[in-house]
Design a protein around this nucleic acid. Sequence first.
DNA 1: TATACCGGTATACTTAGGGAAAGCGATTTG
DNA 2: CAAATCGCTTTCCCTAAGTATACCGGTATA
Lengths: 125, 125
Amino acid sequence: MEETENDKRKCPAHMSGEQCTKALLPVKDALDVLSGKWKLQIILSLTFGKKRFKQIQREITGLTPKMLSKELKDLEINDLAIRKVYDTTPVIVEYELSPYGRTLKPLIGELHKWGTKHRKRIISR
Amino acid sequence: MEETENDKRKCPAHMSGEQCTKALLPVKDALDVLSGKWKLQIILSLTFGKKRFKQIQREITGLTPKMLSKELKDLEINDLAIRKVYDTTPVIVEYELSPYGRTLKPLIGELHKWGTKHRKRIISR
DNA sequence: TATACCGGTATACTTAGGGAAAGCGATTTG
DNA sequence: CAAATCGCTTTCCCTAAGTATACCGGTATA
């Protein structure tokens, strides 16, 4: 069995295997931003306006403060959400989606589109 | 601090909290299909043509046969990849992306687009 | 006959993600 | 004064995901 010909199709002629996997890095980045059990729900929650910590937690059943805290930090680090601390007594903390965070919308839209079709396809079998 | 007004913005007027989270299900489905450490690379590998088991494994450094086997089964279950067994001696098994699997391309394209911008944004700080 | 390749499986292990529960300082509410 | 709310953090634990390693029957190759 000769494979020399087959192996030529590993990658397109103009890119090496390394370049191929490099092209995947941004895809993984995007996936990372949305991955995890709660991020999507939190993002969704924030698309409807500013929210306080406990308010988000109340909305999303099962979400523990530990996870919420962690995920909000992740969103902040990625510039997707903004944390605002108001100097009141007691202190008030509000989270909101950043303008940049809103650029996720079309992406999530695409995921929703494909996912809906997929759901139908898998269920109807 | 009154919150009655704030709480009204939890979800858009026309949908309940439950409907909101239901809308997320297909998004999660789409994410699931691409999640895991190896799936993207395997899909990428298959976009360049039919591949045999060992051939894929050789291409993707670090990928163990156990994981490859598992991921390929996942792809098959989701109709994204096709497994073809040729009745030769020794038997030859080839994997390829299904036409349906190729419908992932625009989605991955979007992920790539957003991810590229994000990568630049995060690195330049 | 020995070695290597094929397409995987089986077993044991480590790591990462997430859940449960408690607690903290500050403050308001009864 | 007691209890509750806010915005968290800490600790411990469990499970799922992934790794390492060995192995299998069959075949081809030196």
